[in-house]
Each structure stands twice: as structure tokens, then as C-alpha cells.
Computed example of a mutant assay.
Amino acid sequence: MDLSSALRETQQCVDGTYDHEGVTCCLCAAGTFVEKHCTATTPIGKCTSCREKTYNSHPNFQESCESCTSCSQPNANLELDVSCTRARDATCRCKKDHFCGSKETCILCFPCKECTEGVKVACTATNNTVCSEKTEGGNTTGLIVGLTLLFVLIIVIGLLAFFFWIRKRNRNNTPEEGRNDLEIPSLQKPLLERNLPDIAEIIGWTDMKDVATRSGMRDTTIENCKLNHVGNAREQTLELLQEFVQEKGSQAQTTLIQTLKNSGKRRIAERVVAKLNSSA
């Protein structure tokens, strides 16, 4: 048995081992990172505690720690639930009177619905308010007003349908590339964390970078996303999209679709909307 193996056996690598340049080294414990790998001549490596606002939650051989999650992103309506430690990331929760539409890690909360006819199910951290239905035998004035508004709405919808039919007929000879002002189907569901990988794949790095630049994101943020995943455009796009959502908050999905549309990427915008509306 050589010296390095003997020392590691004595040391009892309680968190496991990893191979580095042909030498078996001990993993660093949670809450630390590898400052210096072990070698054949220096059989015991050096682990250092994660610095402030960073963490590693598992035994590892990383040469740095992960940045703690921030719960103070503007417009995200989040607040700190559990503080970050060297061995555990921070967790966020929705502010009072807000809810998250995702059962997974939440990055954006929405205001709870306000009811005029009473609350059937109260708003929680993961579900919006459910309002009570209007009781029978109510004020007939309200019923008359409602029917009148419905009648007016039907007329307006009919006029709009006619207008768009005339508009479409008059533009039949317009080239497809010059029709970026066509209406895109409206969003029916909020932007959730689980949607981001699919949306990032639809948009791609070049167009996502263009959206970020047009929407005013800092060049350093964009460049960091690229450098964090050199040669992996998919991960670059996903990280930049996550940064975009955190920065834009509740306006993220609207800003994303409108920016794609205004930059001549109507087909991509339509695919993003279709993906969001079809998500479970």
C-alpha cells in the first residue's frame, strides 16, 4: 500500500472519494469546497468553508460554492422563508396576499384574487382565492345589467370579427415576413419554472440574447450566462431566461412575447405562447 492510500485509509473519507489526475482524493463535506486537490505527493487535499452568501449542500469536489438564492428580486413578490447557510440554500415564500402557481420552486408570485360575493376557499401560498358564487334570488337589477353587458359584448365581438376578416382579406397578398403586426393568441396561463427549459429551447441563445439586450438587461449579466456554460448554448439560454424572469417579475411573460414580436420573431413568439397555454 502506497503512502497516499495509507493516509486516506487512516483519514477515513467519511463523505466518499473522487479521482483527480489518477489519484483518489477525499470529497469535501457539505458547506465547503476544494481549495487544493490531493496529489500523489500531497495525499491530503484542502477543503475551505463556503464564503458569505454561497453554499454547497452535498459532499463535493467543486472548486467553488454555489451562490445563495435571492428572495429580493424586484416585482417577484417574494420574501425570505429560510436563510442561506454554508450547507443549505435559502428558500423563498410568497409575500402576504400572494400565491405561486407552481408546486415546485417558486420564482414568481401573483396577487390573490379579491372576491365581491364572498370567499369560498381562501388564498394560500400555492393556490389562488376561490370566490363564492352569487346566491339565487339576488338583485334583479344586477341581472339586467349583466345581460345588457353581455348583449353589448356580443355586438362588439361581432364587429371586431368583421374588422379582422376585412383586414385579413385586404392583406392576402402581403408577404409573410412583413406581417409582424398580426395578433398573437393571448396567454392563458402564467410563466412557471417548469416551462423555462422548453421555452429556452424554442428561443435559442441568439434570440434570447437579443431579447435580453432589447429589454435593458445589463451586458455583464448576459456575458456571465454565456461564460458559465461555455460551449453549451442550451444551458446559456436557460440561465439567461431565468435571469430575465427574475428581473422582470410579473411582467416577464408579456415583455418576452412583445419583444420577440417587435424584433420580427413572430413565429417564435407564437410557439412560446402555444407552449405556455398547453402546459399542464
Rank of each mutant, 00 (worst) to 15 (best):
Phe99Ala: 01
Phe99Arg: 03
Phe99Ile: 04
Cys100Ala: 15
Gly101Gln: 11
Gly101Thr: 08
Gly101Ser: 15
Ser102Glu: 13
Ser102Tyr: 14
Ser102Asp: 15
Ser102Trp: 04
Ser102Lys: 04
Lys103Glu: 10
Lys103Val: 06
Glu104His: 11
Glu104Ala: 11
Glu104Asp: 15
Glu104Ile: 04
Thr105Ile: 15
Thr105Asn: 09
Thr105Met: 12
Cys106Leu: 02
Cys106Ala: 05
Cys106Val: 00
Ile107His: 00
Leu108Asn: 02
Leu108Thr: 02
Leu108Ile: 00
Leu108His: 01
Cys109Val: 00
Cys109Trp: 00
Cys109Ser: 01
Cys109Asn: 02
Phe110Met: 07
Phe110Leu: 14
Phe110Ser: 05
Phe110Cys: 04
Phe110Ile: 04
Phe110Gly: 02
Pro111Trp: 12
Pro111Glu: 12
Cys112Arg: 05
Cys112Gln: 09
Cys112Lys: 03
Cys112Pro: 01
Cys115Ala: 14
Cys115Met: 13
Cys115Trp: 13
Cys115Ile: 12
Cys115Asp: 09
Thr116Lys: 15
Thr116Val: 12
Thr116Glu: 13
Thr116Ala: 11
Thr116Asp: 15
Glu117Pro: 03
Glu117Ala: 05
Gly118Phe: 03
Gly118Gln: 11
Val119Thr: 04
Val119Met: 09
Lys120Cys: 04
Lys120Gly: 11
Lys120Pro: 01
Lys120Trp: 12
Val121Leu: 10
Val121Glu: 15
Val121Asn: 11
Val121Ala: 10
Val121Cys: 08
Ala122Pro: 04
Ala122Leu: 11
Ala122Trp: 08
Ala122Gly: 08
Cys123Gly: 04
Cys123Arg: 02
Cys123Tyr: 03
Cys123Thr: 07
Cys123Asp: 00
Thr124Ala: 10
Thr124Lys: 13
Thr124Asn: 14
Ala125Met: 10
Ala125Trp: 04
Thr126Phe: 14
Thr126Ile: 10
Asn127Leu: 13
Asn127Trp: 05
Thr129Leu: 09
Thr129Pro: 06
Val130Gly: 07
Cys131Thr: 08
Ser132Gly: 05
Ser132Met: 12
Ser132Val: 06
Ser132Tyr: 08
Glu133Asn: 13
Glu133Gly: 15
Glu133Val: 13
Glu133Pro: 04
Glu133Lys: 15
Glu133Phe: 10
Lys134Pro: 00
Lys134Thr: 11
Lys134His: 07
Thr135Glu: 11
Glu136Asp: 13
Glu136Met: 09
Gly137Ala: 03
Gly137Cys: 10
Gly137Tyr: 06
Gly138Thr: 10
Gly138Cys: 08
Gly138Met: 12
Asn139Cys: 11
Asn139Leu: 08
Asn139Pro: 02
Asn139Asp: 15
Asn139Gln: 11
Thr140Phe: 02
Thr141Val: 12
Thr141Asn: 07
Gly142Met: 08
Gly142Leu: 05
Gly142Arg: 03
Leu143Trp: 03
Leu143Val: 08
Leu143Cys: 07
Leu143Gly: 01
Ile144Arg: 04
Ile144Leu: 06
Ile144Trp: 11
Ile144Lys: 00
Val145Arg: 06
Gly146Thr: 14
Gly146Lys: 00
Gly146Arg: 03
Leu147Tyr: 06
Leu147Phe: 08
Leu147Pro: 01
Leu147Cys: 07
Thr148Arg: 09
Thr148Ile: 07
Leu149Gly: 03
Leu149Ala: 12
Leu149Val: 14
Leu149Met: 13
Leu150Ser: 12
Phe151Ser: 09
Phe151Ile: 05
Phe151Asn: 03
Phe151Trp: 10
Val152Ile: 13
Val152Cys: 06
Val152Asp: 01
Leu153Tyr: 10
Leu153Pro: 00
Leu153Asp: 05
Leu153Thr: 12
Leu153Ile: 07
